[in-house]
Amino acid sequence: MEINIQKKVLEANDTEADINRTFFKDQNVFVLNMMSSPGSGKTQILCKTLAKLMPHVRVGVIVGDICTTNDADRLKVTGAKVTQINTDQFGGDCHLAANLIIESAKQLGCEDLDLLIVENIGNLVCPAEFDIGEDARAVVLSVTEGEDKPLKYPLMFRVADVAILNKIDLLPYLDFDAKLVVDNMKQVHPHLPVFEFSAKTEEGLEPWLDWLKIKVFEKTGK
């Protein structure tokens, strides 16, 4: 006997993501989901971004890692509201699911925020699959990774709304072809905006900050 089902397997997560979206709309906060492989510099980018945006833009951060509060500790220095999710208690999950985000967002308190950034767990595969109710997705790639990463992990670059190429201060010391990696990103996602900068030296940081400020304003009017 065959029983017809026709259901999305991630439907439970998608439902939670829709609940999150409604919550974030009610709170009038723009939510950015930041994803990358481990070590691309997400936390350093956020430290510099927060330092430039605050206090004009009120920012909160949810940081996901399997273990440790190291990233949250670094980000708290900026004065932003920060909370850490460790997934080791959930079996060491490689991504943040929608139900974890809403709990942390409520714990953080979004009523006095304009921008909530979710620093996802370092992984170019799984986080791309899980909607968390965000308004935009950013993918970070650093120049110490390969130029072909966008071709190897196409889903991540397809679902991204913006890409960052970080650590460009290292280019003189590497055989890394920055033009090729951007071309590869555009092969996967032709209209993807790409910002090339160094979070360490802050070279090229301004266009990224402008993009983010416009996105926050477009949603919140703030």
Partner: peptide, 27 residues
């Protein structure tokens, strides 16, 4: 992994299928 439009080179390309994770039936 190439999503660039081969016809107009600079198209706004949307995915129709390929991301499904669905259970259709059980026996």
């Amino acid at each position: 992994p190439v999503f660039k439009c081969p016809f107009c080179e600079d198209g706004d390309v949307e995915m129709l299928t390929g991301r499904e994770i669905e259970i259709t039936s059980l026996e």
